[in-house]
Structures are given as structure tokens and as C-alpha cells.
Design a protein around this nucleic acid. Structure first.
Lengths: 202, 202
DNA sequence: GTCTATATCTTGATAGAC
DNA sequence: GTCTATCAAGATATAGAC
């Protein structure tokens, strides 16, 4: 059970059997749920026998854990990349838009992995959740810092509520937004615009 | 398999064995997930044998269907009640706050039933989802009408996105808000305030 | 690294006594 | 209306050949 980093995984092209299992399983967990998806179903999707999966992953839980970790790495990397690309003197609404767009783009480009985080995580077995919590906390801290900086009038509770409500709004998009109908950047603008200026001005 | 309305159910006090099953099952589905919760677990929670549950519900799916229906009735009733209580000349932000507060209040007072709607519905068996969709659509139409009225500057797409993002924000509260830490009305104000006036002014 | 075969357990659901 | 007893199916996981 070797735990590779995303970097190591990315240099290992092309897609291995192991990667294929991860990808198909993530897709199935996302659409059907974790407990609802059997190893037989996953095995069918990758044209293997159920037993063969155990050569790559020690258990179904370990498979889910790795999927969730990949998803959290994707949004964390996207957040850092967006910060690096912003001009130093970017305005507050521009910064907000850049990070919302980055989150949404990661949500849809690594769709199965990141979206599984949104919908599957709450019902994952306790051990699986516990293994993923530290990375989630670190990512949330990025957002707390961002919102504090751009909305200095909010107190700590206000920042918390704003962050959680914004997460709720962004993450719910996996259940209703179709990237075929527009770019994630436009979607980000449609969310950030009314949020920044207020519905009062819309 | 008699399908009672909420009204009929409410006049049938006190809590029957059947009601107890509904309540405990809703709680378990919410916290552990539907597929993750066995009938044996539900039976334990109500101090019965698994077989006894089948006297009240014809299947596990039927039990979930009824739970989801109760939840949707609760928010629909709350929306109508909030509309009825508003003065005819209430301001747009007051109307928005009243309905957000009503939704949140219903979410937490009928917590297990309405929150199950948020988290369990996406993974419910297809037949269960199909049975509940019409009531969900009707409820959503209420919000579309409300948002169109109070933010006339938004086009249809803008209204849709605003509604979905707001739903995402409101419904995510079941995963992080604790009613012991404040009233749902205050929570509604904390969400509606920045949303209405804009983060730019916060 | 993938297979066949199978062990072991848990699941939703049923039969029938009381 | 609740029970005991049980079934048939499906689950995760393992053993060992190739």
C-alpha cells in the first residue's frame, strides 16, 4: 500500500490499471454513493474480477480514502495557483472571483475526485473521514484568511458563516451545473457578482 | 400502505409506533446514510425486531419515501406560512429574510426529515427520487418567483443560479450550524445581510 | 498482475406462531 | 402488532493457481 503524492502520480503516465480503478470508482461513488457501489460494480467498470482490485488496494475503504485525498489535493493546488497568478495589487472582488473560479474549475476538471468530496464524505466510514480531515482543515484555513482580508468588516463569526455559506453555494454546483453550458469562470462571476455587490443592486 | 397527509398525521397524537420508526429512521439515514443504515439498526433504535417494521412499511424504500415527503411538506408549509405573515408592503430584503428564516427554521425543527432531503436524496434509489421530485419542483418554483420579484435586474439564468446557490448555502447549514449556538432567524440575517448588501459593504 | 473459487458475514425480506 | 426463525441474495475479503 504505497501512498504516492499527486506529483509522483502525475509523472507516471500513461494511466495505469491502478489509476483506472481510482477514476472509475470515484465516478461510481459520486453518482451512486459509496455503500451503494459494490466492488463487483467497480470491477465490471474496469473489466476486472473483484479479487484483482485487492492487488492494488487493501480494502474498499482504502480506495475511498485515496480518492478523497486526490480530490482535496486538487482544490488545494488550485487555490495556491490562483493566488500565485493574481497581481499583487488585485482588487478584493478580483481576488474573490479568482479563487471561486479556481475552486469551481478544480471541482469540474477533477470532477469525480473533488465532487466525491462534497457528496460522499459526509457518509464515509468514520476512519476514512478522520484520515481526510487534516487536509480539509488546511484548505478551509485558506478561505478563512481570504475572506477576512477582503471583508474586514466581518467579525470571526461572520467570516465563518460567509465561508461556510460560500462553500455550500460553490459545492452545490456539482449537483446542478453542467460545464457544457458555460465556463466555470462565468459561473464564478455569476455567483461572485451578486454576492459582492449585493442582490440589492442586481 | 396508507399515505396520510401531514395534517392527518399531526392530529394523530401522541406519537405512534409507526411515527417513532419514521423519526428514528430519519435520524439514522441523516447521520449514517441510507444504504449504510440497515433495518436491524433501525429496529434496535425503536426496540423492535426487524420483521416488525414490515408491519408498518412495505419496504425500506417506502420508509425513505415517506420520510422525504414529510420533509418536503415541512418546508413547503413553512414557505407559505412566512408569506402569509408578511405585511403586504414588506420590503424586498425583509421578504427574503422571512423566507430564508422560514426555510432554516423548518430545516432545524423537522431536522431529520428535511435535512435527510438535503443529504440523502441524491443517493436515494431512483424510484424513491422519482416519487419525490414533483414536490421538490413545486417548492423550487416558490423560490424562483420570490427571487424574480425582489431582484428584477436578474435574467432567468441569473435567477436560477441565485436560487441554486442560495439553496446550496442554506442547505449546507445542516452540516455545520448548531441551533444551540443561536436562533435560525439570526442565522438567516447573517446570510441574507451580506447577500443583500454585498460583501463589498461588509 | 489477473484469474477461479470460495469463505464468511450482513443484508432486505418472508412465514407463521402468538 | 410484535415476535422467533429463517431464507436467498449480495456484500467484502481471502486462498492459491497461473
Amino acid at each position: 500500500m504505497v501512498a504516492m503524492t499527486t506529483a509522483a502520480r502525475k509523472t507516471t503516465n500513461p494511466e495505469t490499471g491502478r489509476d483506472r480503478i481510482l477514476r472509475e470508482a470515484a465516478e461510481l461513488f459520486l453518482t451512486r454513493g459509496y455503500a451503494e457501489t459494490s466492488l463487483r460494480t467497480i470491477a465490471d467498470a474496469v473489466d476486472m474480477q473483484p479479487a484483482s482490485i485487492y492487488h492494488h488496494f487493501e480494502s474498499k475503504d482504502a480506495l475511498l480514502t485515496e480518492i478523497l485525498e486526490i480530490g482535496m489535493e486538487a482544490v488545494t493546488t488550485a487555490f495556491a495557483a490562483a493566488a500565485a497568478e493574481l497581481p499583487p495589487n488585485a482588487s478584493a472582488p478580483d481576488r474573490l472571483h479568482a479563487h471561486v473560479a479556481a475552486h469551481l474549475e478544480a471541482l469540474f476538471s477533477h470532477h469525480a475526485f473533488t465532487a466525491a468530496h462534497v457528496t460522499v464524505f459526509p457518509f464515509a466510514p468514520a476512519e476514512v473521514r478522520a484520515a481526510t480531515v487534516p487536509k480539509r482543515d488546511a484548505y478551509e484555513a485558506n478561505w478563512t484568511a481570504l475572506l477576512s482580508a477582503i471583508a474586514p468588516g466581518l467579525d470571526d463569526d461572520g467570516v465563518s458563516i460567509a465561508r461556510l455559506a460560500l462553500f455550500g453555494a460553490m459545492n452545490s454546483t456539482v449537483q446542478w451545473f453542467d460545464p457544457a453550458n458555460g465556463s466555470t469562470s462565468d459561473l464564478a462571476a455569476a455567483i461572485v457578482g451578486p454576492l459582492w455587490n449585493g442582490l440589492a443592486n442586481s
